[in-house]
Amino acid sequence: MPRTPKFHRETALNNALKLFWRKGYHATSMKDIEEEMDMRPGSIYAAFGNKEALFKETLEEYSSLAEEEFKQALAQKSSVLQGISLYLRNIAVMTATCAPTQACMLVKTLLEFTPEDKAFSEPVQSYLEKFEQLFTEAFQQAQQRGEIGSSQSPERLGLLLQTNIIGLRTMARREIPRQQLESLADDIIARIIPAS
């Protein structure tokens, strides 16, 4: 039996990611998954395992994509702070136009499950901590370049950035105009980046 090309597996996973992102874990049925992925139940189980395993894989994929988006924004600018600002503005544009839902999939999952649901809550906590560390490292780099003062705490700024990103995505759920979201992104960067 020939192997399924990797492209098709990635396409199916991306479709599942969008479905879970839009509906959440509990509201998504196996029938929904079959239709969205255009796969039969046996093929889904063979390729991804059960619903829980598939969901966890989509969380991992979401985390990887979001991390890559942040790194790409930083790479496009000569200044770390300009890269962070671009990332925030990109969130405003993306949430207003093409995301399955404006809210962060990790935060939606965190709110959907109780801390006792460790099979789901612990991976999400781990991904969020990873992003906080990523933001902290960006501010450390900015500090090394002299973009922020040496008295500033990259750890505090990283956590503050994460908090504001969650807030920006939540505001996007209110379906406010894109221009207003972009202005909010500018306001966030202006308030959390201290003067050198």
Rank of each mutant, 00 (worst) to 15 (best):
T163C: 15
M105S: 05
L181V: 05
I189Q: 04
F48Y: 14
D186E: 14
S153G: 01
G158K: 07
N90Q: 13
V124T: 04
A119T: 15
M39E: 01
L86E: 05
S78D: 14
S153I: 10
Q76M: 11
V80L: 04
K31S: 14
L110F: 10
L74T: 05
F20H: 06
K18D: 11
F70Q: 09
A12M: 05
L184H: 03
M171P: 00
L168W: 08
I148H: 03
I91P: 00
E36S: 15
T163V: 06
S64T: 14
A99P: 03
S78W: 10
A27L: 13
F70L: 14
V124Q: 11
E129P: 03
T101L: 13
A99Q: 12
P41S: 00
R40T: 13
Y25T: 04
P5L: 11
S63N: 11
V80T: 04
Q140I: 10
Y25R: 00
S150N: 13
S63T: 07
P115G: 14
G49H: 02
S121D: 00
P41G: 06
A96I: 01
A47I: 10
T28P: 02
T101W: 08
A142F: 01
A16N: 01
L86P: 05
M37A: 04
L13P: 03
A190Q: 07
R9G: 07
E35P: 01
E34T: 07
A66H: 13
R178I: 12
K108P: 04
A53T: 11
E60Y: 06
R173I: 08
L81Q: 02
V107N: 03
T58P: 00
C104H: 07
L54H: 05
L19M: 09
I84L: 12
G42W: 06
P100H: 07
I188S: 00
R178A: 13
M94L: 13
K77F: 07
A190H: 01
L134N: 06
